[in-house]
Amino acid sequence: MATVCSAVASAVGALLLATPAVPAAAAPVLVHPGMEIRHAANVCTLGYVDPVLRVAFTAGHCRGEGPVTDASGAAIGNLAAYRDNTPNGATVRTEDLIADYGAIVLNDDVAVNNILPRGLALESEPGRVPAQGQAICHFGIITGESCGTVERVNNGWFTMANGVVSQKGDSGGPVYVLDGNRAVMVGIFNSTWGGFPAAVSWESTSGQVSEDVGVVNTASFIRPAA
């Protein structure tokens, strides 16, 4: 009996040695709001992500050539539309209209969710706009999450204070208000103006996207994730 068992064991061992190991399939890249993205030499933060439409948004001034990638260089999608009239220099008037968005169509092979690094779902709610004095938060890949209040609402953009911070690389990150166990998108981080971190309004951006991609109903293009 021992001889038979030894023979079986030897045969199984030989079979295992002869059978090449099958490498495990690599997990797909996960695309989510608040992640680091790169477009050519530009490093920025991803803002809103729609898991249903598989479209993601960042700042238009983050655009470059070729595919958009994650921090490791894996392609996640391609820039489909953008606007960027961010003023040059250090001066901007409050009446100036600032538009700054980039819409990225995500690749079929990436996984997608709308969960912020803090664990809350980031949702889009048509008609939701920031108000002066309102509590607000921003997430950037350099500074993480910082919260404060809306300092001033301007022409399609707004500034923040009392705790909101930013650094280069935070551009494009989501700006949101907390509403119970969810976060509601109200802006895309743009720059710092007059010493205050600033974002373009998500409501204004939604209208611009609708014009640029030929969608009549904004809510059908940018909507809360299912």
Rank of each mutant, 00 (worst) to 15 (best):
A24L: 10
P33S: 09
M35H: 05
A21L: 14
G13E: 15
A41M: 05
A40L: 01
A14G: 11
P67I: 04
H32N: 07
A25W: 00
R63D: 03
R63C: 06
T45V: 03
A59M: 06
D50Q: 11
R38A: 06
H39Y: 01
Y48V: 08
G64A: 05
P51D: 10
V52Y: 10
D50R: 10
C62K: 01
P20I: 13
A24G: 08
N42I: 01
V12T: 13
L15Y: 14
E36Q: 15
V49T: 05
V31Y: 04
A14I: 09
G60D: 05
A24P: 02
E36P: 09
L17V: 12
A27R: 04
V52W: 12
L16S: 14
V12D: 13
G13P: 03
R63T: 04
G34V: 08
A26R: 07
A25I: 02
I37Q: 01
V31K: 02
A11M: 11
T19W: 06
P51I: 06
D50W: 08
R38P: 02
A24M: 03
G66T: 09
A56S: 06
G66K: 06
A26F: 02
A11C: 12
M35T: 05
T45A: 08
A27F: 02
M35F: 08
A27Y: 01
F57H: 07
T45Y: 02
L46N: 02
A11N: 11
H32T: 02
G13T: 15
L30R: 12
G34S: 11
Y48R: 12
L30Q: 12
I37F: 04
P51M: 11
L30W: 05
G60N: 05
A14F: 09
A40R: 00
G64H: 04
P28W: 10
G34L: 03
G66D: 04
R38F: 05
C44N: 03
A25K: 08
E36M: 15
C62W: 00
C62L: 04
P33K: 10
A56E: 08
A40T: 12
R54I: 08
L30T: 10
C62G: 06
A11T: 11
V43Q: 04
A18E: 10
V29P: 04
P51A: 07
V43M: 01
T58I: 01
V55R: 14
G47E: 07
A59E: 06
P67T: 09
R63H: 14
A18T: 12
C44F: 00
N42A: 07
G66N: 03
M35E: 09
N42P: 01
V22E: 12
F57P: 01
A56N: 08
A27T: 09
A9S: 11
G64I: 01
I37P: 00
G64L: 02
A41G: 05
A41T: 09
E36H: 14
V43C: 00
V55W: 11
L17I: 11
G13M: 13
C62Y: 00
A56K: 03
R54N: 09
L15D: 14
A41N: 07
